[in-house]
Design a protein around this nucleic acid. Structure first.
Lengths: 338, 338
DNA sequence: CTGAAAGCGCTTACAG
DNA sequence: CTGAAAGCGCTTACAG
């Protein structure tokens, strides 16, 4: 059986196809009784408006595209647990707003930048990424040039293109460091990237530095070790770190790094938190169940997802939108020593 | 600046719009040189074929819809970690096949069953769910009646509608139980649903029973306690359980149940695995990091996601497809006692 | 190999 | 309040 069209409904209802279209979109131009009759027939026939036709005519798709792009160097765990929780709230918020959501994982190297928008499959884009920022900044600029509406998770910064929703990483780094200081820790190390390729991690580091300075400690003495946000990298970096010196506190730029860090320390029979206190960042699901449970900084991913959607919808509506900075929250658990 | 259309390209290339369309879809009917010229212009203009128009004309969307429906009673952790890993591989496989993916979380109560297909937004559906099977069986039947192509994660069963990809839950239950028997455990309990509403969990239970019988133990003596697949429910059920009797082995129908189970036991100062060995099911990410690390049965979610996509694409191609049963794998960790 | 034309199923000005 | 008609931007028989 072929799918019913609005003409079929019109025929059965004894009205014109225009009237059917109006009735089903709840236009006030239609007589109440006519509308009810048409709706009833539509339901019986299991009729649904063809989105391709209606989108084509209306020149909008009522669809958002979520582009998740990962660093190709990431391991095979496939998807960063931090973004998973965001994905959930983005999906919910999109559905609640009456939009559909296209999801795509992008490789940073792909020519992804505007396919969904250019091909009219989506009205706007939401970007989540944790690859090198310097590598994809250029693509963001292209999106702006093409006047494509998008929101992204990231560090708000006037220099950087696009409307962002982000967490106050500086403050988060500050809070974590202050917490460690209050516990009497004095010799700090930082594991993670601190260059421009990772503005979020860099801000956490700067927050850490600031807290040290504000508490009369020299930030010169902090031991730094680079690591990307995967467990193995945290492990390797920590081994390097403890060959150089043994701090009494390690602030890791992410929970995944912290997991690797603690694994390295435990292997070398260094006790966490007794010998070294460790703090992570992100509050991923695992962190609570780790041994020892990980002290970390939580970013409100639920709010973040909702706001990314909300801001994008405002932009599609030609309303003014500005960057949003969410407050991070310190989650104190065993790994920092209480 | 308005978006370019195929007519604009045609004008610039000095050919007809038909030729542009053919060239961009790599039709062999177009002269190589003409094709190259057209493609070059299209690229310069950042032209992308309008999917709404092309889908409307072709009557297919090159899009799959992933419907994730949860039991409304589930807690606010938003999304079952087990399906998350599947989501990742489904996304990848869909992209690789040149399809787009619409993602939607559905509530079991919603009238979701065919919206995406009926409205021509998707060519086929992939269903992931862990609500009560008896409640949504009816909707699956409706999908079949409407001749809508879909694959779903679930227990293969001739009685049940739709093409499934599933894991051999009977075997998984059997393996887990045999493992516990080999460790010398004799008094078994099972925590989880065993009725028709959860065919997967039921099969795990039946596998457990079979292993007991095959090893000369009476399955009559097994202590059963109902629980749905959330942590709290596992916790509550376990408290009830140990008020009735203290087994030396508990087989939990899922990892989430097992986490709650262990929490309850530890609170009552019952040692895991010394006093009671606990085994879960699913091998969710957390299970490895739990204290003690959880012995569990792994379902290959990566393969599962790929196969769900692959089978659906075969169906869209009118090819014969049959249910697929994946082999589960026992993951031995500390919670069972080694 | 190329072009003119029909038509996919809608929405929405326009006219009444 | 309703209908006839145009047109969204493509793909693809049909004719050459």
């Amino acid at each position: 059986m072929k799918k019913a069209t609005s003409f079929d409904i019109a025929h059965m209802a004894g009205v014109s196809q225009s009237t059917v279209s109006r009735a089903l979109s709840d236009s006030p131009l239609v007589n109440q009784e006519t509308r009810d009759r048409i709706k009833k027939i539509a339901e019986e026939l299991n009729y649904k408006v063809d989105k391709n036709a209606s989108n084509l005519r209306k020149q909008r798709s009522q669809t958002l595209a979520l582009l998740l792009f990962e660093d190709p160097t990431s391991d095979d765990s496939l998807i960063n647990p931090f973004f998973i929780s965001m994905l959930a709230s983005i999906t919910k918020a999109t559905t609640e707003a009456g939009y559909d959501l296209l999801v795509s994982f992008q490789n940073l190297n792909d020519d992804w930048h505007a396919v969904y928008k250019d091909s009219s499959k989506a009205d706007g884009l939401i970007l989540l990424g944790y690859g090198s920022y310097t590598e994809y900044e250029h693509k963001l600029e292209q999106l702006e040039e093409q006047d494509i509406r998008f929101t992204r998770w990231g560090a708000p910064d006037l220099k950087h293109p696009g409307i962002t929703v982000g967490s106050d990483n500086f403050k988060g780094g500050y809070m974590a460091t202050e917490h460690l200081l209050q516990l009497g820790r004095k010799n700090f190390a930082f594991v993670g990237l601190t260059d421009d390729s990772a503005p979020e991690l860099q801000a956490r580091f700067l927050g850490c530095i600031a807290a040290l300075e504000d508490n009369g400690l020299s930030s010169e003495d902090i031991i730094k070790e680079d690591a990307i946000s995967i467990e193995n990298s945290g492990y390797d970096a920590t081994l390097n770190l403890i060959n150089r010196a043994i701090p009494d506190a390690i602030f890791c730029a992410s929970d995944l790094i912290a997991l690797g860090c603690i694994r390295a320390l435990q292997e070398r029979e260094i006790k966490v938190p007794e010998d070294i206190a460790v703090v992570g960042y992100d509050n991923i699901q695992i962190s609570e169940f780790f041994t020892p449970p990980l002290t970390t900084v939580s970013q409100n991913t639920i709010d973040a997802g909702e706001l990314l959607v909300k801001n994008l919808l405002l932009m599609l509506n030609d309303e003014e939108v500005s960057d949003i900075l969410l407050k991070p929250e310190l989650i104190v658990r065993k790994s920092s020593g209480n």
